[in-house]
């Protein structure tokens, strides 16, 4: 289900300029790609149990 999100006109102008400079077919395509990348990055970092596990060998962490 599609959802509308409002952004102010100043931000919209900057987003449009960035999407044109980066060679995207449309502003929508650019915004979707940026959001997907950011959500993936945050999800990976939040699930980085390996990093936490590797710290637990520190004797300081009882």
């Amino acid at each position: 289900m599609a959802t509308k999100i409002k952004i102010d006109s100043h931000l919209h102008d900057r987003v449009r300029a960035a999407s044109e400079a980066a060679g995207y077919a449309s502003v929508e395509e650019f915004v979707m790609h940026v959001l997907e990348k950011e959500v993936s990055r945050l999800a990976e970092a939040g699930d980085d149990a390996g990093v936490i596990d590797r710290l637990k060998g520190l004797g300081y962490l009882e």
């Binding site: 990055r41 945050l42 970092a45 939040g46 980085d48 990093v51 936490i52 590797r54 710290l55």
Partner: peptide
């Protein structure tokens, strides 16, 4: 890491 709040060594 402030952007993820994840701890690291």
């Amino acid at each position: 890491d402030p952007t993820t709040a994840a701890p690291f060594s």
